[in-house]
């Protein structure tokens, strides 16, 4: 590669990188400056925290944040348990109808929660769980995807370790708990990161099954807040948007490599 061509590449790459950040940078600019500087790009424009305070005061973001944390934690930890149990059965047991059952599980990859949300809405209402956090979690807990990736990982655990654990006196659950799960931690981390960001970003289902601030998650709260007819200031909406995404952006900044590896090894959002 000649020097010139390389320089063109570098400049092009950096331009693309900058362009990709631009929408976010623009929102940040609006959020941290007084309203009169919204579209005046002056390096010396005074900084302000006012927009964040304003947004924080206008909607119960702390409650939304707490709800989101509960929802995401509940969902991901339940997924770990339920999917690990099923994945263990598929990875290490022979039983009648095994392939049929595995096929039934994989069907979930075809029937996305979005296409059956009307029926699931009725089910949640029937169970009396409307407007609760478990209602948001329930349809996602048995994740075909989780079962699939954990099964792949469990299959790589040497069978001799099962034998050794059996002789050491372990029962089925103890083998899972003390041998398979510790040896599959990287997969749990990867799947966990993917699941957390999926659920942090989930909107349509939480919108449908929640209708009060007590159970709304950040995304729904943010949408309700920014769609209010009263005409909220742009700067305030930008600030609210940044507040909602800040935990994710921070987590991504810290765990960038893990995030990228997780998404690429597990392959689905």
């Amino acid at each position: 590669m000649t020097g010139n061509l390389k320089n063109v590449n570098v400049i092009g790459a950096w331009l693309l990188g900058f362009l990709w950040l631009l929408p976010l940078l623009y929102a940040i600019w609006a959020a941290i400056h007084p309203i009169e500087y919204q579209v005046r790009f002056d390096i010396f424009a005074p900084l302000t925290f006012f927009n964040f305070k304003n947004a924080w005061a206008q909607a119960p973001f702390a409650q939304y944040m707490l709800n989101t944390l509960i929802y995401v934690t509940l969902t991901t930890s339940s997924q770990f348990v339920v999917c690990a149990l099923a994945a263990f059965a598929f990875a290490r047991f022979e039983f009648p109808l095994k392939n049929v059952l595995f096929g039934l599980v994989l069907i979930q990859l075809l029937i996305h929660p979005e296409v059956v949300l009307i029926e699931n809405y009725k089910t949640i209402r029937f169970l009396g769980l409307m407007d609760t956090i478990p209602a948001i979690s329930l349809p996602y807990i048995a994740s075909a995807f989780g079962i699939f990736v954990l099964r792949q990982t469990f299959k790589t655990v040497p069978k001799a370790l099962d034998d050794a654990a059996l002789i050491d006196g372990a029962n089925t659950l103890q083998i899972l708990r003390h041998v398979y799960i510790p040896l599959s931690l990287p997969t749990f981390v990867a799947y966990g990161l993917v699941s957390i960001s999926y659920h942090w970003n989930n909107y349509l289902w939480p919108l449908i099954v929640t209708n009060s601030d007590e159970s709304r998650v950040l995304n729904v709260g943010l949408a309700v807040f920014s769609m209010e007819e009263a005409g909220v200031e742009w700067a305030t909406i930008s600030a609210a948007t940044l507040m909602v995404t800040a935990p994710l952006i921070t987590a991504f900044l810290i765990f960038q490599r893990q995030f990228i590896e997780s998404f690429s090894t597990t392959g689905i959002k």
Binding site: W20, L218, S238, A240
Partner: peptide, 23 residues
Amino acid sequence: LRFSFFLPVVLPLIAVGNIWLFF
């Protein structure tokens, strides 16, 4: 570059919508 390209992936689409609406 990697950070800038991948960042939109972790953002909620709702929030992305807000950011672009302003844009």
